[in-house]
């Protein structure tokens, strides 16, 4: 049981000079093994939502449930890739990747195997014994991703995990994530600023508006992906060239620009026909 459910979540922050309403009436769920992407302008509360699912922040109204249980703190079933990497500067790349396994008590030989697997998978060969500050931003981000993947958690919470990557590495990571999601699907809540990325990766895309943060639309991508057989495409550019992809992408862009009024789209978004 690893679905995430937000039930009428509200989050106020205390600030000098009054309360600040960051999130209002957030209702949605990420089904078990579903990949949901959150898009929305900066400051609309995406990170705050993710932190609540992680158990690092708590709603001031409503409930957040993971696997039917109210979230009371971080747990071994969930791992987070942070927007600012948050690597341990005093640990080598290998030690960073193996940190969760060490906490879990995984035997050393098995731990080593898993670490090597992810060092290779993330293209970090030759840097295993370096410290984070000796790596480029993109490499650091890959370490952060590997640190979370290595735990094989039921739920992955990713806050713009590819934000610091160069375009090429970003595409490689996205394709890798699609492959991982296909071979070993997990429940994923994924924040991104890139609409293309959201449409390419997610089963559903949630579009948010700011001040206060609200959900403006939920777009189903999974149905289109299956009927249009995006999965047969080996590379992202092939998917992006599909008419169905272009359609969904411009639809989300219009939502973000506020060209479509939000009220009606919530209902309409569910059917999401193509063309």
């Amino acid at each position: 049981m690893s679905e995430i459910r937000f039930e009428g979540v509200e989050r106020r922050f205390h600030r000098p000079g009054g309360n600040f309403l960051a999130l209002e009436n957030i209702c949605f769920e990420v089904a078990e093994r579903e990949f949901v992407a959150l898009v929305g302008p900066s400051g609309c509360g995406k990170t705050t939502l993710l932190r609540m699912a992680a158990g690092l922040d708590f709603p001031t109204g409503g409930r957040v449930l993971v696997g039917n249980r109210e979230v009371r703190g971080p747990g071994p079933d969930r791992a987070v890739v942070f927007q600012q990497f948050a690597l341990f500067p005093w640990k080598t790349i290998r030690q960073n990747i193996g940190f969760g396994l060490k906490c879990k008590g995984t035997p050393l030989t098995q731990r080593r195997e898993i670490i090597e697997h992810y060092v290779t998978l993330m293209g970090l060969q030759g840097h295993g014994d370096a410290y984070p500050h000796q790596l480029s931003g993109g490499m650091q981000q890959r370490v952060a991703i590997a640190r979370s993947y290595a735990l094989e958690p039921d739920v992955l919470l990713m806050d713009e995990p590819f934000g610091a990557l160069d375009a090429q590495t970003r595409v490689l990571m996205q394709e890798e994530l699609v492959r991982l999601a296909r071979d070993n699907p997990r429940t994923v809540l994924f924040i991104t600023h890139s609409v293309d990325e959201a449409v390419y990766l997610a089963d559903r895309v949630i579009v948010m508006t700011p001040r206060p943060g609200r959900i403006s639309a939920i777009i189903d991508i999974g149905l289109v992906r299956r009927t249009e057989r995006w999965i047969d495409c080996e590379h992202i550019e092939e998917v992006m060239a599909q008419k169905s992809f272009v359609h969904l992408r411009s639809r989300i862009w219009r939502l973000l620009r506020g060209l479509e009024s939000s009220g009606e789209t919530v209902g309409r978004a569910m059917e999401t026909g193509v063309g």
Binding site: G73, P76, R147
Partner: peptide
């Protein structure tokens, strides 16, 4: 750094790990 502490927590650190590893 608070984010580093949080990163340790979400990757399963208990009090001992937090103290000695962070």
């Amino acid at each position: 750094n608070r984010t580093v502490i949080e990163a340790a927590k979400v990757h399963g650190a208990r009090r001992v790990n937090l103290f000695f590893d962070v």
